Simulated assay, not measured.
Amino acid sequence: MSSDKRLNNAYKRAKTIAFDDTSKFILFSDCHRGDNSFADEFANNRNIYFHALKHYFNNGFQYCELGDGDELWENMTFEPIFEAHKNIYMLMKRFHEENRLHMIFGNHDMVYKNPAYVKKHLYTYFEPKDEKEATLLDQLQFHEAIILKHRENGQEIFLTHGHQADFMNYHGWRFNRFLVRILWKPLQVWGIADPTSPARNHRELIKVERRIKRWILKNKLLVTIAGHTHRPRFPEPGDIPFFNDGSCVHPRSITGIEIVHGSISLIKWQIATKEDGTLQIVRILLEGPQQLSDYVQKED
């Protein structure tokens, strides 16, 4: 099956969410939340991520996570990840309770494609204080893709992880997971990067992006937002409308995409130093805001 067919299938199966010019979304991907070991790349940015996510919760945003949220190649199960970053999942629970949480699976958390796995591991957790099971992300569903469809003008924003354009990370994810668990996780502790990741393989990164852009051209310039490669992208109007929200495992920073009141922006959260030497977490606008209506789709 070609990357075009895999992306077509993801589009056909996508969950549709209506939005309008009053809606507010934050899109993050590739958090790779781990177990707080030396191999957990997310651990360095967890305070930045928690602060940013709390900001978005308090300001009425909906949260879309575009895959690879949990690092389930290096870790056998979800439980040690939950214990390492419990405060984050309790915040995600608050999003979920208000129907503001939308989850997409990627290649590193492909097991979430199975509803039975999600039910077993994410619906509840054991609360030691009460010595019983407590509700976590009850009835949560993961999707391969999501379509944001504007209520008035019908414009569609296609959200997916992007591994559909990467054969080995789509069909061969179990083999890659085996290599990561057995070989690359121990070496990662010593600073040796995993070559199976397109984020660390520049040639593969370019191939993945080229395949997605080719698919966008074949589909009426459909506005597409993905992750997977960890490389932020923000096209100008008139260019191929392929966006990438980056990742949450950049050195000392996280990047994401905001959709607010009909406009789109690429943002970064990082730690900055004040004049008095104290540290603070700040939001930086990297690109935009640009009106979504400027990315016009072709008519049939």
Rank of each mutant, 00 (worst) to 15 (best):
K132C: 13
K132R: 15
K132G: 06
K132N: 11
K132S: 11
E133G: 01
E133S: 14
E133L: 14
E133Y: 14
E133A: 14
E133R: 14
A134N: 12
A134M: 13
A134Y: 09
T135P: 05
T135D: 14
T135C: 10
L136G: 05
L136E: 12
L137V: 01
D138W: 10
D138C: 10
D138R: 14
D138L: 15
Q139D: 15
Q139E: 15
Q139L: 10
Q139C: 10
L140D: 00
L140I: 15
L140R: 01
Q141K: 12
Q141Y: 00
Q141R: 08
Q141P: 00
Q141E: 12
Q141H: 04
Q141W: 00
F142R: 05
F142C: 02
F142W: 15
F142V: 04
F142D: 00
H143Y: 14
H143E: 13
E144D: 13
E144M: 07
A145R: 07
A145D: 09
I146L: 13
I146Y: 12
I146M: 11
I146P: 09
I146K: 08
I147D: 02
I147Q: 10
I147W: 06
I147N: 10
L148Q: 01
L148M: 01
K149R: 14
K149D: 00
K149Y: 02
K149F: 00
H150L: 06
H150C: 08
H150A: 07
H150E: 12
R151Q: 14
R151T: 15
R151F: 04
E152P: 00
E152G: 02
E152F: 08
E152K: 12
E152V: 13
N153P: 04
N153V: 10
N153Y: 07
N153K: 11
G154E: 09
G154P: 03
G154T: 02
G154R: 10
G154A: 08
G154K: 11
Q155P: 02
Q155C: 04
Q155I: 08
Q155G: 03
E156S: 10
E156A: 09
E156Q: 15
E156P: 04
E156R: 14
E156V: 04
I157V: 15
I157A: 02
I157P: 07
F158W: 13
F158H: 12
F158C: 13
F158R: 08
L159R: 03
L159F: 11
L159E: 07
L159I: 04
T160I: 12
T160W: 09
T160C: 15
T160S: 14
T160K: 07
H161D: 08
G162R: 06
G162L: 05
H163G: 00
H163A: 05
H163W: 01
H163E: 03
H163N: 11
H163T: 00
H163F: 09
H163K: 00
H163M: 00
Q164A: 13
Q164Y: 08
Q164G: 13
Q164W: 01
A165D: 07
A165I: 04
A165V: 05
D166G: 04
F167Y: 12
F167Q: 03
F167K: 08
M168D: 09
N169S: 11
N169L: 09
N169A: 07
Y170E: 03
Y170G: 00
